[in-house]
Every structure is written in structure tokens, then in C-alpha cells.
């Protein structure tokens, strides 16, 4: 009697084993709720609207470094010129491709702030204002630096800067890198870099000639 009961219970267990499990073999697709795959920086020469420079930084699978494509992440700018900058942020994992910059320009503006930092900077800050981004590498005074100054020209509804739209002012011929960082600062945005965390953090190669 006893043994039969136990066998019965074991049978119930086996039944549960068969019925209770979702299929491990059916793999759900990877979904990233906030994947940024592509950052596109478009610079238009104010003196010559036909002079357009575009840099593209792309990583189609945000978790896989093998999908990084920085072949287009180069900016060739004219010396002593002024450019109007526009930044486009895309998520190509969405179908159709999602325009994240449109969201950031809208409701999300109060939570985001873009930083543009030429690197390296001189320890005397001849190229740009004081680095906004902490830990920016500096070089000794007199060493060549990237002669580029960037100013944000758009603001959120709290009148704090945003940075999707910018003005790039170049100086004498030079080369270096431009670090572009999108800071996500929900409830804490105050114009500084320190609060919040980074949604993207990338470098463009810059040549001013």
C-alpha cells in the first residue's frame, strides 16, 4: 500500500516534470530596451553649405565588440572655419530603425546632456575651455593639441544645454580625437558631467587641415 502511494507520488512528479517547464530549446531573441547602435555626427560649414562632413560610429550588436565599425568615424575639417553640428543617434536593432535623437530632443531632453571633448588637451587649455569631462588626458604646454572648440546651441525646457545641436570652431591645422559622450541624468541633470551615467561614450578621429 505504502509503496504504491509513493510510486504514485513519483508519477505525479514525473508528470509535473513534463508539463511544468517552458521550452528551453525555444530561444527568445535578444532584446535591448535601449540599444544605441549608431551615432552620426553631421557638420555643415557655415561659410559653404555644400561642405558637409559626416562621421559615423557604429556597433550593430551592442553587446558584441566584434560588430564595431569605426571605419567612418573620421572627421576632416578645414582650418579656421565654423561648422554647425547635428548629432543623430539610431537604434538599428529596431524594425524600422528607431531615431533615438528625436526622443532625446523631445521629452527626454531634461534627462540627457551631450559632451564633446577634444583630446588630448593642453595642460594650459589653449584649445578648448577647461575639460568638461573629468579624467581627460592632458599633455604638457607646447605639445600639439587639437585646435577645436565646441559649443552646444540647443537647450531643454529647463533652459539647460542639451548638445544635439552644436557649433564647431576650428583653429590651426592639427590632429587629435573628439570624445562624444551622452550622459543619462534622470532627475539629476545640472549641467555637469558627474551625475548620471553614460549611454554612449565614443571617439572620432579628427584632422584639421
Amino acid at each position: 500500500m505504502f509503496k504504491i502511494n509513493y510510486l504514485g507520488l513519483l508519477a505525479v512528479g514525473v508528470l509535473l516534470a513534463i508539463s511544468s517547464c517552458k521550452k528551453a530549446s525555444e530561444v527568445a531573441p535578444d532584446v535591448d530596451n535601449e540599444a544605441i547602435t549608431t551615432v552620426r555626427l553631421k557638420l555643415t560649414n557655415n561659410a559653404n553649405p555644400a561642405d558637409i562632413v559626416v562621421g559615423v560610429w557604429e556597433q550593430l550588436t551592442p553587446t558584441n565588440p566584434a560588430t564595431i565599425d569605426i571605419s567612418g568615424a573620421n572627421l576632416r575639417l578645414r582650418a579656421n572655419a565654423v561648422y554647425s553640428g547635428e548629432l543623430e543617434i539610431l537604434d538599428k536593432t529596431q524594425k524600422p530603425t528607431a531615431d533615438i535623437s528625436a526622443d532625446i530632443a523631445g521629452d527626454e531632453a531634461v534627462e540627457h546632456l551631450l559632451f564633446y571633448q577634444p583630446t588630448p588637451v593642453s595642460s594650459l587649455n589653449v584649445s578648448n575651455t577647461t575639460p568638461d569631462i573629468p579624467n581627460t588626458p592632458t599633455v604638457a604646454a607646447g605639445s600639439p593639441v587639437l585646435n577645436l572648440r565646441i559649443a552646444r546651441t540647443d537647450r531643454d525646457k529647463n533652459s539647460l544645454q542639451l548638445g544635439l545641436k552644436t557649433t564647431f570652431t576650428t583653429g590651426a591645422a592639427s590632429t587629435g580625437k573628439l570624445k562624444v559622450v551622452l550622459r543619462h541624468q534622470p532627475d539629476t541633470k545640472n549641467g555637469t558631467y558627474g551625475v548620471g551615467s553614460s549611454d554612449f561614450d565614443i571617439d572620432f578621429m579628427v584632422t584639421i587641415q
Binding site: L9, L10, G13, L16, S20, C21, K22, V31, D32, N33, E34, D91, Q94, A98, I100, D103, E108, H184, P186
Partner: peptide, 30 residues
């Protein structure tokens, strides 16, 4: 002793731009 356990774990990151109701991660182990 027989036991059946079901563990459902959801991890929600910051409010995302898309699908703000969805978690970033869901794992269910039985």
C-alpha cells in the same frame, strides 16, 4: 523527498526609451 521550484527573476534598469514597462532581463529557472 521531491521538490519543484520555480524562480522568476526580473532586473529592471533605468527607464528605457522603448517599452518602458519591460525589464532589461528576465530569467526563469524551474
Amino acid at each position: 523527498n521531491y521538490a519543484l521550484q520555480n524562480n522568476q527573476r526580473t532586473e529592471n534598469d533605468r527607464v528605457p526609451l522603448f517599452r518602458p514597462q519591460d525589464p532589461e532581463l528576465y530569467l526563469e529557472v524551474t
